[in-house]
């Protein structure tokens, strides 16, 4: 049974290594960032400069400020035009805050 023990030892080493990596960062809630190094400083920065977005993808305005962009910003030329920015396949404009609805009024209705 030498091979089985060898396999178990191999798997245990990998599993322990993985567990050590996961435990190092295995905390599953948002506020944790504040307890990390620079977490408080980042929150101070966001609060003082009144920032709303991450400076992650700076090629198009709706990927630079996904939470602030309007719907048509993804369609630079006209509504419904093809998206041409590569990060547009990753970051879509958000629908938050738009609640206008087109309504059909039939003849004779108010």
């Amino acid at each position: 049974m030498f091979k089985s023990w060898l396999f178990f030892i191999f798997c245990s080493i990998l599993a322990l290594f993985l567990a050590a990596l996961l435990v190092q960062g295995a905390v599953t809630s948002g506020p944790v960032v504040a307890s990390l190094p620079d977490g408080k400083a980042k929150q101070q920065l966001v609060s003082r400069l009144r920032l709303t977005d991450l400076s992650l993808c700076s090629e198009a305005r709706y990927t630079r400020h996904p939470s602030q962009a309007d719907l048509f910003s993804a369609f630079q030329d006209y509504p419904g035009s093809f998206e041409h920015f590569p990060t547009g396949s990753i970051i879509l404009p958000q629908l938050e805050g738009f609640n206008n609805q087109l309504r059909i009024v039939r003849q004779g209705e108010n």
Binding site: V33, S47, Q68
Partner: peptide
């Protein structure tokens, strides 16, 4: 990173929408 850092983002941002755009 985003949800942790942006926890102190402004309570409400008010934009004006004109002709469907910001």
């Amino acid at each position: 990173e985003a949800t942790g850092s942006l926890e102190t983002a402004p309570d409400i941002v008010v934009q004006r929408i004109f002709a469907g755009r910001h």
